[in-house]
Computed example of a mutant assay.
Amino acid sequence: MTGEGFALLAALSYGLAGVTIVRGKASARGDNGVFLSVVLTAAVSGALWLGWGQVRLAAVASLDAVEPIAVFLAAGLFSMVLGRTTMYRATEQIGPVAASLLRRLTPVIALPIGVVFLAEFPAAQTYFGAGLVIAGVMLHIGRPARTPGDGPGLGWLLGVGSAAFYAVSYVLRSHGLDQLPDAAFGTFIGALAGLAWMMGAALTRAGGPARLRRLLTDRGPWHWLTAAALSAGQIFQFFALKSAPVVVVATLGSLEVFFTALLGVVLIGAGAVTARRIWLPALLAVAGTVLLMS
């Protein structure tokens, strides 16, 4: 499968996760399964690496692997901790479709970072395609749904923050894969970094043991489904970055908006999709995706 194909599978997985996060919130007593999702990502990616990985233990133990491993660790903190946590909180506050569309801002940040640090200079149509995606996001942000209270405002900020964190992680992953080309290993290392950070943060705060136990409080069906979807999306994304430019992978995620909207109808109900507000921005995002794949 091509990098573009893996990117589309990642978008489908993240679309499903956005909807199941909302379903899981109703029964959540802890973090709504954020930690559980990182645990499952580590387990699945570790198994894939040990069973079918391209980089073996001897290569990982060499001095040449120190830099890419450090890069994967940093990418894990940006994606597994910062990006994933803000994605959960934004989705809970503004809904899965709006949060999904906000993540399309990722190419805005990934593009200049990729140019500066990876020397990736996409063709003109890539810039134009990314521009269409950005236009769709800005169109939606210009007229977001309004609900009482301060929560939605914070939700929009968290959504933008999530896009920024994921953009940095994309660039870091791509750089690491250039030196150590094993998507499963990179995902595994990043997930371990996320687990270590979350457990360390829990233990160093007041009531550490109780906070640590609270990380695995939420283990209902929707939490497991979210964890599985996010794990699949993370791994597909790593495989996509092996053979496609970082900006293409980031921007192909625009189809996540459609996947989220359609799955929202099935799993949440028609009210989850504000069609009149979302379809024009989503169509602009898909038009950009077509340009990227042509």
Score class of each variant (00 low, 15 high):
residue 214 R to H: 13
residue 215 L to E: 00
residue 216 L to H: 02
residue 216 L to V: 12
residue 217 T to R: 02
residue 217 T to K: 00
residue 219 R to Y: 01
residue 219 R to M: 13
residue 219 R to V: 09
residue 219 R to F: 00
residue 220 G to M: 00
residue 221 P to D: 04
residue 221 P to Q: 01
residue 221 P to H: 04
residue 221 P to T: 05
residue 222 W to C: 00
residue 222 W to T: 02
residue 223 H to R: 02
residue 225 L to R: 06
residue 225 L to V: 07
residue 225 L to A: 10
residue 225 L to P: 02
residue 227 A to L: 02
residue 227 A to Y: 00
residue 233 G to R: 09
residue 235 I to K: 05
residue 235 I to H: 08
residue 236 F to Y: 14
residue 236 F to N: 13
residue 238 F to E: 13
residue 239 F to A: 09
residue 239 F to V: 08
residue 240 A to D: 10
residue 241 L to V: 09
residue 241 L to K: 07
residue 241 L to W: 04
residue 243 S to W: 01
residue 244 A to K: 03
residue 245 P to A: 06
residue 245 P to S: 05
residue 245 P to T: 03
residue 246 V to M: 04
residue 246 V to C: 10
residue 246 V to Y: 05
residue 246 V to T: 15
residue 246 V to G: 11
residue 247 V to H: 10
residue 247 V to Y: 06
residue 248 V to T: 14
residue 248 V to C: 06
residue 248 V to L: 06
residue 248 V to N: 11
residue 249 V to P: 03
residue 250 A to I: 07
residue 250 A to R: 07
residue 250 A to N: 10
residue 251 T to K: 05
residue 252 L to K: 08
residue 252 L to E: 10
residue 252 L to I: 09
residue 254 S to V: 10
residue 254 S to I: 07
residue 255 L to M: 05
residue 255 L to E: 07
residue 255 L to D: 01
residue 255 L to P: 01
residue 255 L to W: 03
residue 256 E to A: 04
residue 256 E to R: 04
residue 257 V to T: 04
residue 257 V to F: 00
residue 258 F to I: 14
residue 259 F to L: 01
residue 259 F to V: 15
residue 260 T to V: 06
residue 260 T to E: 09
residue 260 T to D: 09
residue 261 A to E: 01
residue 262 L to Q: 11
residue 263 L to M: 11
residue 264 G to R: 05
residue 264 G to Y: 03
residue 265 V to F: 05
residue 265 V to H: 08
residue 266 V to L: 11
residue 266 V to P: 09
residue 267 L to Q: 01
residue 267 L to K: 02
residue 268 I to C: 03
residue 268 I to G: 04
residue 270 A to P: 13
residue 271 G to V: 08
residue 272 A to N: 15
residue 273 V to H: 09
residue 275 A to P: 10
residue 275 A to R: 14
residue 277 R to K: 15
residue 277 R to L: 11
residue 279 W to Q: 14
residue 279 W to E: 12
residue 279 W to S: 13
residue 282 A to W: 00
residue 284 L to A: 11
residue 284 L to M: 12
residue 284 L to P: 12
residue 285 A to V: 02
residue 287 A to E: 11
